Amino acid sequence: MLIVLAYLAANVLSNLSVSYFGAISTPINAFLLIAFDLVSRDALHERWHHNNLKLKMLLLIGTGATLSYFLNRGAGQIAIASFVAFLLTGLTDTLVYQMLRNQPKLIKVNGSNIVSAAVDSIAFPTIAFGSFIPWVIIAQFSAKIFGGYIWSLILFRGNKRKKGEATA
């Protein structure tokens, strides 16, 4: 439950800071908060794999966007962009994560995050700001990859796959 609350807090903080500070805050958010969201979603994927995964992920993403909107109605466009981007990212992440299911955990997590970071880095700023902003997209993508790697080491430490062990 703690990881769900942390995911939601990171999502809401990211959305509200973008609403307040604008595009300039997105690389910092990408490194600290969105990278955490990408990796924590993989951790939740592992936990929820056989227990309503799709429904829980959709509710998680929708709750983050709804909380952002209700905490700051001015963040409406940001909340919509966040919901759409995280929905696309979640679908992409799940697909790639499942394709890598027989790989070691850090390969699955970081491999799926590379693709997810690309999708999110294009979708979110384009929807949120109404235009394609290359420097924001490149900065976000780079920050998510580096931040995601660091978060994967933190969230999955001591959780290495044993030799011959299959993973979900």
Results as ranks from 00 to 15, higher is better:
M1L: 05
L2Q: 12
L2S: 13
L2V: 12
I3M: 12
Y7E: 02
L8W: 11
A9I: 15
A9Q: 04
A10L: 02
V12N: 07
L16P: 03
L16Y: 10
Y20W: 15
F21V: 09
G22C: 09
G22V: 08
G22F: 06
I24T: 13
I24C: 04
I24M: 13
S25E: 08
S25K: 01
T26L: 15
P27D: 12
P27W: 10
I28R: 05
N29S: 11
A30P: 03
F31P: 00
I34Y: 10
A35P: 05
A35C: 10
D37S: 15
D37M: 15
L38S: 02
S40I: 14
A43L: 14
L44A: 04
H45W: 10
R47V: 10
R47Y: 08
W48I: 06
N52Y: 12
L55T: 12
K56T: 02
K56I: 03
L60P: 01
G62F: 05
G64C: 12
A65Y: 06
T66M: 12
F70Y: 12
F70N: 01
L71K: 08
L71H: 07
N72V: 01
R73H: 12
G74E: 15
G76I: 01
Q77P: 00
I78N: 08
I80Y: 03
I80E: 00
A81P: 05
S82K: 06
F83M: 11
F83Y: 11
F86Y: 15
L87G: 08
L88C: 15
T92C: 13
T92M: 04
T92G: 06
T92R: 00
D93Y: 01
L95Q: 02
L95I: 15
V96R: 01
V96D: 03
V96S: 03
Y97D: 07
Y97N: 07
Q98T: 06
Q98P: 00
Q98A: 05
R101Y: 11
N102V: 00
Q103S: 13
P104R: 09
L106K: 08
V109C: 07
V109F: 05
V109D: 09
N110T: 11
G111A: 03
G111E: 06
S112D: 13
N113H: 08
I114R: 01
S116K: 01
A117H: 10
A118I: 10
D120L: 05
S121I: 05
S121Y: 10
I122D: 12
F124K: 03
A128W: 03
F129T: 05
G130R: 01
F132V: 12
W135H: 13
I138G: 10
I138Y: 14
Q140A: 13
Q140D: 14
A143K: 09
A143C: 15
A143W: 09
A143D: 11
K144G: 11
F146H: 00
G148V: 05
W151E: 10
L153V: 02
I154D: 08
I154M: 11
L155S: 06
L155W: 08
G158N: 10
K160I: 02
R161N: 05
K162P: 00
K162E: 13
A166I: 10
T167R: 04
